[in-house]
Amino acid sequence: MSRRGRTLWVVGLVAALVVAGVVSSYASASPDGLEWAAEQSGFLSTAEDSAAATSPLADYGVSGVDSERLSGGLAGVIGVLVTLVLAGSLTLLLRRRSRSAATAED
């Protein structure tokens, strides 16, 4: 990656970590559009708990961490890093490794 490419990447990652780790605690707690519409139309009760509901990170909290803000922020940071590693590995595996791409780098 070029230097400016690296700068953009680092700024983007910091932005993602701040959004997931800090800004997320200011998110609206109201039901989202689908949940609201399901409630309005009277079928919200048909929702079932996911089999993953017992995950230690369920509902964007880390089980065992009491502070709501810390728990949510930590869950967000973990989620960003896990997503980055999984999607990053996948896209790195799929990329074209051609010489022309390497020399086109500025």
């Binding site: 490419g5 932005a15 997931a20 890093l81 790195l92 799929l94 780098e105």
Partner: peptide, 16 residues
Amino acid sequence: ERTAPLAGLTAAFVFA
């Protein structure tokens, strides 16, 4: 080589 690193970051950003 140029766009692949940005793709992983894009997924992480969308998650956030």
